[in-house]
Design a protein around this nucleic acid. Structure first.
Lengths: 211, 211
DNA sequence: ATTATCTATAGATCTATAGATAATGC
DNA sequence: ATTATCTATAGATCTATAGATAATGC
């Protein structure tokens, strides 16, 4: 899956042409995502990344200044892609008479589609230097914030029962994490439930409906 | 926090005295848990582990045959400790007239107490060789299974509404993961909720009660 | 004699860079 | 002249083991 990218500005580089930097960063990210998913961050070497991106190890280091830079580019690109997916999904869900059920459905489908990428974030965020780990966690909060907004809107239109702000915020986190759960427990869940089963059962669970 | 241990049998060793092996393995685990929590598995060296455990690098390798062995011992010890905590908690919750609310409360308190350890499992399980990753994931299923049993019992006594087996199993996974969520989102949650707030709100959420 | 421990290091990486070469634009 | 790329390797680790030494039990 292609992941979008635009965090060039945070990374030091020797190269003058900004368009070129952008293109090379994209190549680096696309190569690294696949390798990290397959082997993990630590077992992937900078040489492998350079080779997969199609240039030499020397050139690679003209566009980044450390291996951690690559992980940051990767995490940020994944979040951008997830956020884009969620925003589009929200727009689609808001098309008809929007309901929380549809929002959950669209979001869980994004999680299903980007399963490997979300798992990667769970496993490797810790390997980032602190200042960048912080940025990556802020991305996570921003995505959760989308659900808060949707829920607040649904409450205002009466399509969702009244909730305190704190309960609503926690519910937004729950929705986020139950989406992620499909990715990090798929080794079990996917053997017992299809993604559609999962969505249906979890929607009932979240909305507090009995069967 | 001390973590218990009994997976000596899986690890090859040159040493004849089984009691000694057990004691050394425990030392290795106790040293490694702290180092892994602080620096992660990959950034911790075998020398650091040997030093923290109180013997030489040469001796360390008499008791294990690879660095991954240590990670396996650590993951297994953590699961044993969590499982012990959960079992005790279940026993306590079952003391009076047991309710799912009390079970959740006791379990979430275990997660709160073992926060760093649970986080470690989330981050480093991937670094295990496949056969041992499998064992670690089985541990996770076993712990979830405890909730399934409790819920089945509560349904049989009428203390919990009727549920299909699949819905019940998924609910057990949700309880597990929402407990873990307190550990891997504490960077956000702990700033807004105390553990008691968290338990109360999540209990309402899981039981499908309105406010 | 056997078992456990230690010291010293082989051997294998891997990241990051220096310096040489090629490509581009005036 | 300037910018981008490549090759070759310095320098720094780190895991795992070989061989020497100490401790234990008969």
């Amino acid at each position: 899956m292609m992941v979008s990218f635009d965090r060039t500005k945070d990374i030091l580089t020797q190269i003058k042409n900004p368009e070129l930097v952008k293109r090379r960063h994209r190549q680096i990210v696309d190569a690294a995502v696949q390798l990290f998913i397959e082997h993990g961050f630590h077992k992937t070497t900078t040489r492998q990344i350079a080779a997969a991106a199609g240039f030499s190890i020397g050139s690679l280091y003209e566009y980044i200044s450390s291996k951690e830079d690559i992980l940051y580019l990767v995490c940020d690109a994944i979040h951008a892609e997830v956020e884009r997916g969620v925003s589009e999904a929200m727009a689609r869900a808001a098309g008809g008479r929007s309901s929380l059920g549809e929002v959950i459905r669209e979001y869980f489908l994004v999680c299903n589609r980007m399963s490997d990428h979300i798992l990667l974030i769970y496993q490797e965020t810790q390997s980032l230097p602190p200042q960048w780990r912080k940025k990556v966690l802020e991305n996570e909060v921003r995505i959760t914030g989308i659900f808060v907004e949707v829920m607040a809107h649904l409450i205002s239109t009466g399509d969702l029962p009244q909730l305190s702000d704190r309960a609503m915020e926690l519910m937004a986190h729950n929705i986020s994490v139950l989406g992620h759960m499909w990715t990090f427990r798929s080794w079990f869940l996917a053997r017992h439930y299809s993604i559609d089963d999962y969505i249906e059962l979890q929607t009932r669970f979240i909305l507090g409906l009995s069967e």
